[in-house]
Design a binder for these strands. Structure first.
Lengths: 217, 217
DNA sequence: ATGCACATACCGACTGCTCGGTCGGTATCG
DNA sequence: CGATACCGACCGAGCAGTCGGTATGTGCAT
């Protein structure tokens, strides 16, 4: 563990933990109320501090939101890349990516909400951000598809557009799941979505039926 | 034409045209600035009237927006249904729907923006609205897919989820096109997207290659 | 240890501004 | 003379961000 155990925490430590606390509170508030409808006093209250306290650690509301989106996206991307790295077969890799995203979102509704609902609802200022975010994930998918193409697993296609379409399909399924009240578990959509997407890029029917899926933690 | 030509317009006529004028102005302002960033004074100015004038014809900002979304969605749905009605073959019908949406959006960037970008950015209040809108179009797609299934043109699949996925893919492609500055014409995406989507629901490769597409006005 | 000087962390009343909506008034039409 | 259409100054609520203040460390000299 850390080198010092039952010791009064230093100022820097307390400061960092306070920061995290505020970030956490902001995350929850943003995901519940959306960016624009979240009031700084609410974040402060949820973080058991005051508005002044929040503004001591962060310069603006926007900065908090940006940091949250960035780190959340990073976390997800890391998870996906890790899952993908466990496979070498290109189709299995694409498949792993899909499965990981779905599983992650299924486990953390709020995470998905922040990335895909609020990021849109945050207003035009964030369009560049959102755009980059979507590009990033669509690009990830496209690169896996590229691998699959050059490995001869699927016929040559417009992988960029396919990446966008895959992402869009995924996004919509997740978004629908987020917005509907009595939502059936997201994982139930996986087999169908998997088949749909793999078919769309011309994967063999035989390969699609072969469900050699590993489990996701 | 209308029964009376070079005659001073009646009060009711002027009122209606003023209403349209305001609706038009609101449409353009909403699509340029987004719902939240649009100010009533801006709408009034764009409509060559005053805030009071706007509020004479509409009770709230929200009412204007709702009406715009509703009528815009109706117009699009009508176009699609009309295009679909010209075909009997289920695949051709689904195809026509896709083509129409793409062509319509290509011709009216702003229309797409209102329906799919602003409707999300309008805040949580409109979630129900947006949800219903997405459901409506996903449902339309699903019903065409259902036809295709019962006609034996494609294997039995989860058409509801496929509709959602199709719509999501379409939506994302359009959204990307809307947000990128140097956008290549949207129609260039059509052949690829068509192939992608049709393949995803198991249409024969032969049928996909057969591009018996009619033209869209 | 004790006192002191300074920094860090935090507080909450207040400010300044934005913006949806109102209201008393005016003009034009029928 | 209504009624309908329109005007724009004004109201008031909401809210991001500020600022003067307090309290709690932290380093250092005595």
């Amino acid at each position: 563990m850390s080198p010092n155990e039952g010791r009064p925490p230093t100022q820097a430590e307390r400061s960092r933990s306070r920061r995290e606390q505020i970030l956490d509170a902001a995350f929850h508030t943003f995901t519940r109320r959306g960016y624009r409808d979240t009031v700084m006093d609410e974040i402060a209250a949820a973080a058991d501090t005051s508005k002044g306290g929040v503004y001591f650690h962060f310069p603006t509301k926007e900065a908090i939101f940006r940091e949250l989106v960035r780190t959340t996206a990073n976390r997800l991307a890391a998870k996906v890349e890790q899952a993908v790295a466990e496979h070498t077969d290109p189709i299995a890799r694409a498949d792993a990516a899909l499965r990981t995203v779905l599983a992650t979102f299924a486990g953390h509704r709020t995470m998905a909400r922040l990335l895909f609902v609020d990021a849109m609802g945050a207003g035009r200022v964030f369009n560049a951000e959102t755009n980059a975010l979507h590009d990033r994930f669509a690009g990830m998918i496209a690169s896996y598809l590229d691998e699959a193409v050059s490995a001869g697993a699927i016929p040559p296609i417009d992988t960029a557009l396919s990446g966008v379409a895959w992402f869009g399909a995924l996004n919509e399924v997740v978004a629908r799941w987020l917005l509907v009240d009595e939502a059936p578990p997201l994982e139930t959509a996986y087999p169908t979505l998997r088949a749909l997407l793999l078919r769309s890029v011309g994967v063999d029917e035989a390969r699609i039926a072969d469900d050699s899926a590993g489990s996701v933690p």
